[in-house]
Simulated scan of single mutants.
Amino acid sequence: MASTPSTVESIDLDVSQFCHTPFYCEENVYFLCKKLCTNRMDDATGADLFVVFISNEKKQYLLSNKITFKPGIDHFVLIPLWHQKASKREDGLVLWDYHVICVQRKTEGVFPFIVWDLDSTLPLPIPLGSYVSQAIRPSFQISPEYQRLFRIIHAPIFFRHFASDRRHMKDSNGNWIAKPPDYEAIVAEDGTIHNLYEYMAIKAADVYTNNIDVKDAVFSQKLGAVANDLEELFSHIL
């Protein structure tokens, strides 16, 4: 969907120009950030972009057929997100195993941060506060062991280090669970071919409690910083 004046300032960019393969959200966000850098919507280095992994610590799987989130898989980690295109429900609820979005810092306009989620039915982009209230819904009651956590990585660091050979999308027989993108898999600058699991492994013990430390980690660490409140974290990196 295109953005509207009621959400964020108008952006002259056709959403169809973004690379998007269903169920490969980490790669979609990687190339979304690259696209934003080359379309004069951000610093050419991605300095105002942040990659956010949404997952939880428990990593417990639940058998269910009520909501399908990946072809051929009937188990999922409890990561509820609303207004998702993959949902068959009116409220757009999907229980992902993990999800990845992009947050962009804006130096002009009413909203300091906006969210890009190519899997969402919400306006694209959308103010961070609106995305949190409508898609994440912090007030939704979840057992403590399933609480959603957020790993935030500065895009320039993500560009240097992230790699995925898509092994997580194959079953035990080596068959694809979902059709992979047509382009080559992403290889890190140091030659690493797969480290996606490092980004997905999010522990409550890793949540930063010091505002100075969390800001430093976001802008300097390969795996960024872990937070349990997305809006609160970004309020410290203005």
Score class of each variant (00 low, 15 high):
residue 105 R to C: 03
residue 168 H to V: 05
residue 211 N to R: 13
residue 204 A to M: 11
residue 154 H to L: 11
residue 178 A to R: 00
residue 86 A to L: 15
residue 228 N to V: 04
residue 127 P to G: 12
residue 236 H to Y: 15
residue 55 S to Q: 10
residue 174 G to D: 05
residue 127 P to F: 07
residue 109 G to C: 05
residue 38 T to G: 04
residue 111 F to S: 13
residue 208 Y to L: 15
residue 159 F to T: 01
residue 75 H to W: 06
residue 32 L to M: 10
residue 209 T to D: 10
residue 87 S to R: 10
residue 154 H to Y: 09
residue 130 S to D: 13
residue 106 K to L: 07
residue 31 F to L: 12
residue 221 Q to A: 11
residue 231 E to F: 01
residue 210 N to I: 10
residue 162 F to E: 00
residue 170 K to A: 06
residue 66 K to M: 08
residue 106 K to E: 04
residue 2 A to R: 12
residue 84 Q to I: 05
residue 75 H to E: 10
residue 235 S to Q: 07
residue 28 N to Y: 05
residue 22 P to S: 13
residue 16 S to N: 11
residue 57 E to T: 03
residue 44 A to K: 13
residue 138 P to T: 08
residue 30 Y to Q: 02
residue 236 H to L: 10
residue 199 Y to I: 01
residue 117 D to H: 11
residue 203 K to I: 01
residue 222 K to P: 00
residue 155 A to W: 04
residue 11 I to V: 15
residue 69 F to V: 11
residue 163 A to S: 08
residue 7 T to C: 14
residue 43 D to E: 12
residue 150 F to M: 07
residue 123 P to T: 05
residue 171 D to V: 05
residue 134 Q to F: 00
residue 135 A to P: 01
residue 134 Q to M: 11
residue 136 I to R: 11
residue 15 V to H: 09
residue 63 L to T: 12
residue 146 Y to C: 13
residue 223 L to Q: 05
residue 73 I to T: 09
residue 70 K to L: 15
residue 233 L to V: 06
residue 114 I to N: 13
residue 224 G to F: 12
residue 207 V to C: 12
residue 229 D to S: 14
residue 64 S to R: 03
residue 139 S to I: 09
residue 31 F to V: 02
residue 74 D to Y: 11
residue 49 L to N: 08
